[in-house]
């Protein structure tokens, strides 16, 4: 990956794009193409944002959503990576489980919403369950395929220099799959953040997904847009945070090619 140098001048360009979009939005509003009840102005959104922020509701909803994502995602990492390791190392396990894992990976996690509500009702648990279903299967697959693609020469070198058991796992297998696993984490974390919104719209009484659904029900499009902006910004921040993992010196080899 070539290091692109973003000069301050180039960085200004993105700000310019945002300003143009907001300006277009203001023009659309003032021309009255859409009814005001379903199309807020930028000013209304800023006011709505301030209202939600002051009441503390925005903060509480953000915390609720982040809690669900981190719990469901954490569980998926905790269980998915060991299972992926096992599948990657054992051909018979791969033969047995891979088709099933592939099936569930291809099944939209949103298809679980009815069962999530039937089994877990409303609140944290159905959302956590849905996020787990979102990230668990792709993580298993990413880990298993990373393990299965470790070059044989690494195993031979490990044997030559006496790496066995736990040491083999921590010094050879895990570092060898790290770059691919980190990529898997980024993809699944992004998916989880997408799914939590849908989960909360249907099976929540709080959270950012519920916030925008509730705003629609109250005919408050300003709050709806404010919620959307917060959701988008948090999604970007989460990814930026996970990108930091790719900067660890011992995994750079997987990206600098």
């Amino acid at each position: 990956m070539k290091q692109e140098i973003l000069t301050p001048k180039l960085k200004m360009l993105s700000l310019l794009v945002v300003l143009v979009v907001v300006a277009l939005w203001a023009v659309l509003f003032s021309k009255g193409f859409f009814p005001a009840s379903s199309f807020p102005s930028p000013v209304q959104v800023v006011k709505g944002f301030g209202e939600e922020a002051r009441s503390g509701r925005l903060f509480d909803d953000t915390v609720a959503s982040l809690f669900r994502v981190s719990t469901g995602f954490g569980l998926a990492v905790f269980l998915g990576i060991p299972l992926g390791l096992w599948l990657g190392l054992k051909l018979s396990a791969r033969a047995a489980f891979l088709p099933a894992v592939n099936f569930f990976r291809s099944l939209s996690p949103l298809a679980w919403i009815p069962f999530a509500i039937l089994w877990f009702g409303i609140g944290d648990t159905p959302a956590i369950f849905l996020i787990f279903m979102t990230s668990f299967f792709p993580l298993v697959l990413a880990t298993a395929s990373a393990v299965a693609s470790i070059p044989t020469v690494h195993f031979r070198v490990a044997q030559d220099y006496g790496f066995h058991g736990l040491e083999f796992l921590t010094q050879v297998t895990l570092p060898a799959i790290m770059p691919q696993v980190i990529t898997g984490l980024r993809v699944t974390a992004g998916l989880s953040w997408v799914v939590v919104v849908a989960a909360e719209m249907i099976a929540g009484r709080d959270g950012l997904g519920f916030l925008i659904w509730d705003a629609r029900n109250q005919l408050r499009p300003d709050l709806l847009v404010a919620g959307m902006i917060v959701i988008g910004v948090i999604g970007v921040v989460l990814d930026r945070l996970l990108v930091q993992l790719t900067l660890i010196p011992s995994v750079r080899w997987g990206y600098d090619k």
Binding site: V153, P175, W253
Partner: peptide, 8 residues
Amino acid sequence: HDGLFPWK
């Protein structure tokens, strides 16, 4: 080639 561990 590739006998070295790239993560070390």
